[in-house]
């Protein structure tokens, strides 16, 4: 048993919001459960009510239309991984999702859950940062958009408040030109958390490169956009590496030393840039 708590499976988002509002801090949203249930087992969290939002239609939506790209908050990662439209448009998103955990866990774990758990090493964070994604968040008072760029407020902390339900993750409309890629350094080829991860999105016609880095600071870090016009690949890489070094502060933990993180971050970034510049990261 994972503890003593109540469980509710609301029939609508409004009902979910009402239950969460009533529950306050003692209520928790249950989507995939792959982080929450581990926390319950380990006694790190002890909510008195779980509100299961998995079966709500809005949260199961997956749209890859020319006017919007929406991944519902309860869509399992495997659905994202296996979606051909998403793979074609945002290879980095598919790869990031595929890098998470195991096949079994990806049948439960969700994009939104990976973000909301707010691990500094969250694999979905860098790619969604460079894609300028935002969350649709609803609570009893209304609906708002929360850019992923403002979501993380610290290690395992977000700007979401009790009562909030993430409805979906919205990305810019599929952009035939954008090249995205994701890279992850881990200890073993099998399932592992990231020692360092990073994602890039490159729009050749706009001469813009966006890069984000995870597991090197208390939160995933989005670097300022890079203007690639007239910059040689080598100079661009140097600039990205400098910016990444300045924006991150790796620490020693059980997964890696700060020194190792500092050593592989440039490697990962160079490979990432090669991915998007050479077009291996998808796009056209």
């Amino acid at each position: 048993m994972l503890g003593r708590f109540e469980y509710a499976r609301p029939q609508s988002v409004d009902e979910a919001c009402r239950l969460l509002a009533e529950g306050g801090r003692a209520a928790a949203v249950l989507a995939g459960g792959t982080d929450l249930l581990v926390d319950l087992r380990n006694g790190f969290r002890s909510p008195s009510l779980l509100v299961d939002v998995k079966r709500l239609g809005e949260l199961q939506a997956l749209k890859t239309r020319s006017d919007e790209t929406v991944v519902g908050a309860a869509v399992p990662l495997n659905v994202v991984v296996e979606n051909r439209e998403l793979r074609k448009a945002y290879a980095g998103l598919s790869d990031a999702a595929l890098s998470i955990a195991t096949y079994q866990l990806r049948n439960r774990a969700t994009v939104a859950g990976n973000l909301c758990n707010a691990s500094p090493a969250a694999d979905m964070a860098p790619i969604l940062l460079v894609l300028d994604a935002e969350l649709t968040v609803q609570n009893a008072k209304g609906t708002r958009a929360v850019p992923v760029a403002t979501l993380f407020t610290g290690a395992k902390r977000t700007c979401l408040v009790p009562g909030d339900v993430v409805i979906d993750v919205r990305m810019p409309p599929l952009d035939g030109e954008l090249r995205t890629a994701f890279r992850k350094q881990q200890r073993i080829r099998g399932h592992d958390l990231a020692v360092v991860n990073a994602a890039a999105a490159y729009a050749p016609s706009r001469a813009t490169l966006r890069v984000a880095v995870g597991s090197c600071a208390p939160t995933p870090v989005l670097l300022e956009p890079f203007d690639t016009k007239g910059t040689s690949p080598q100079a661009l890489a140097d600039e990205v590496l400098r910016a990444a070094a300045a924006a991150t502060a790796p620490i020693d933990d059980v997964r890696a030393s700060a020194a190792y993180r500092r050593a592989v971050l440039p490697v990962l970034l160079r490979r990432l840039l090669a991915d998007v510049v050479s077009g291996r990261g998808g796009g056209i």
Binding site: G190, H191, V254
Partner: peptide, 28 residues
């Protein structure tokens, strides 16, 4: 390649689970 206990300065085991004690998987 991977296995080994990691202790903190107080002698507490830092990797007593499959999250941080990695054994070979089919990918390895």
């Amino acid at each position: 390649l991977w296995e080994g206990f990691r202790f903190d300065k107080e002698g507490r085991l830092k990797n007593p689970s499959f999250v941080d004690y990695k054994i070979p998987t089919a990918k390895d």
